[in-house]
């Protein structure tokens, strides 16, 4: 596997490192590149970036590369890297931080469907306080379609419709799709938590 050289930005490395350490709660400088994380990462090979390499990018101050690589978007938060790290660094917390930073910087996500999925999940649960699969799929497919249209890629839309109708029909047959909307009675309380979250981000 060939890898591109990581650019070292001494002036930029400190603020980037501190921001990510603060937000993710992870002690990145403790990484001594033993690569136990790389050996266990289920997506590292396909992403072309393993957890050790992501940590290196951050330590060297390569903000652009750290936010725009496939590991950030393919990371499944399976926590294998963190469970095996001799220095207790949980890289899944770092990829989560980087996803949030990419969103705040209005960077186009490398895997738009992953971003659309999590946005749709949060939007769907904010409406009734519970996750309703049918409502979620509606929001998710709309977000996907909007993003595919924006990128002029219409094949994604037809593939998506095929895949979700195949699954949806199988779910109906097995009585595993529910059309009744579940709802929290004290919805105001749940909404207050969402509101507090927005206030914190705005600050």
């Amino acid at each position: 596997m060939t890898t591109t050289a990581i650019k070292y930005e001494p002036d930029l490395s400190k603020p980037l490192l501190h921001e990510i350490m603060e937000r993710s709660g992870q002690n990145l400088p403790a990484c001594y590149q033993c690569r136990r994380c790389a050996a266990g990462c289920p997506v590292g090979v396909e992403a072309g970036v393993t957890p050790d390499r992501l940590i290196r990018m951050i330590l060297l101050g390569d903000r652009e590369e750290a936010m725009n690589n496939l590991l950030v978007w393919k990371c499944l938060s399976c926590f294998t890297c963190g469970a095996r790290c001799p220095n207790n660094i949980q890289t899944a917390r770092i990829t989560e931080t980087l996803k949030q930073m990419a969103k705040e910087a209005h960077t186009e996500p490398l895997l738009p469907k992953v971003a659309a999925f999590h946005n749709a999940f949060m939007k769907a649960t904010s409406h009734f306080g519970r996750f309703n699969e049918v409502e979620f799929m509606g929001i998710y497919e709309l977000e996907n379609t909007a993003s595919a249209v924006k990128r002029g890629n219409l094949k994604i839309i037809t593939d998506e419709i095929k895949a979700s109708s195949r699954l949806g029909l199988a779910m109906i047959r097995k009585r595993r799709l529910h059309f009744r909307l579940a709802r929290v009675r004290n919805l105001a309380e749940v909404k207050a938590l969402y509101k507090k979250s927005r206030q914190q981000t705005d600050r």
Binding site: S77, E96, Q100, K103, T125, S197
Partner: peptide
């Protein structure tokens, strides 16, 4: 009870 936020909250919204 309400939805726990699952992995999506963890990935997108630390507070929630």
């Amino acid at each position: 009870w309400n939805c726990c936020g699952a992995t999506s909250a963890e990935k997108t919204d630390e507070f929630l």
